[in-house]
């Protein structure tokens, strides 16, 4: 373990009882925070103190605490998952903060992600987008022998790069337009890179994009904030490739038109 220190922080945390009630910032002191703690462990410590003082703890989503489930995430000092590149909030450790820092902690903000409570938001819009076509239609039992499908290594690698998305929503939170393009394009490109994904490639692009629009996400202005905030460092070229698939799909593979 590296040298362990303790630091004191001031937290300004967004508290909101539910979607219908307006929220506000509350200020809490986080004292004796070990620099070995993760950000969420720091919140645990603050919450324990709040609870013992009869104040309801800060609600926040979290689960695996090893950066893979995608449950956690809030905006720390204006940055989704905090300032460390390629890192989820649960993997952000307190040694990256300085004694005396003030941290402003807000939920992911987007019209498509309504607040449930405090820092907890409803990201079910992502599920709806996947339901619109983020899959390969193969029924259990009907799959051919695995080695009969050849996938060039490069495609497998590109597909894996895109498939690494954990669906945390940081891209939406970081985008000035609350756009979900990085999330949607990651799924479209994961499947679009693979031979298995080809039969539904264009249909998938059309349906997922239309669903994304319907759910109230913004448009892409190519700010690239999504890429910069993505804890899995998914690249913005996915968005360009998705745009290409969509245009080709609409102009040349439109099932309704032909």
């Amino acid at each position: 373990m590296s040298e362990s220190n303790t630091i004191h922080l001031t937290l300004r945390v967004w508290r909101q009882p539910n979607a219908a009630t307006p929220g506000r910032f509350e200020t809490y002191e986080a004292t004796n925070i070990s620099t070995e703690m993760s950000f969420l462990e720091m919140l645990d410590v603050v919450n324990d103190q709040l609870a013992l003082n009869g104040i309801e703890p800060i609600a926040f989503d979290h689960d695996c605490r090893e950066g893979i489930c995608g449950a956690c995430g809030c905006v720390v000092n204006g940055q989704a998952h905090g300032h460390l590149k390629g890192t989820t909030l649960c993997q952000l450790h307190m040694r990256h903060f300085r004694d005396g820092d003030t941290l402003v902690i807000e939920p992911f903000r987007a019209k498509a992600f309504p607040i449930i409570k405090d820092l907890v938001v409803d990201r079910s819009a992502f599920d709806q987008i996947i339901q619109a076509g983020g899959y390969i239609s193969v029924k259990t039992g009907s799959a051919p022998e695995a080695s009969s499908i050849l996938v060039p290594k490069k495609n497998a690698d590109l597909a894996m790069d895109a498939a690494a998305c954990i669906g945390c929503g940081a891209c939406v939170a970081a985008c000035p337009n609350s756009s979900a393009m990085l999330f949607v394009s990651a799924k479209i490109n994961h499947l679009g890179q693979l031979p298995q994904g080809q039969p539904e490639r264009y249909r998938r692009a059309i349906h997922m994009i239309e669903k994304m629009d319907e759910l109230g996400f913004g448009n892409c202005s190519n700010h690239l904030e999504c890429e910069a905030a993505c804890p899995k460092e998914i690249q913005f070229v996915n968005i360009g490739r998705m745009n290409r698939d969509y245009i080709i799909a609409k102009l040349f593979h439109n099932e309704e038109a032909f």
Binding site: V104, R109, S178, H223, A228
Partner: peptide, 23 residues
């Protein structure tokens, strides 16, 4: 529609380095 999609603004917002002055 972009403004509408971010219906509540952040009280602090900080670029991660994606945005430029132009964008």
């Amino acid at each position: 529609s972009n403004w509408k999609a971010r219906n509540v603004k952040y009280s602090v917002s900080n670029s991660r380095g994606g945005q430029t002055f132009a964008s």
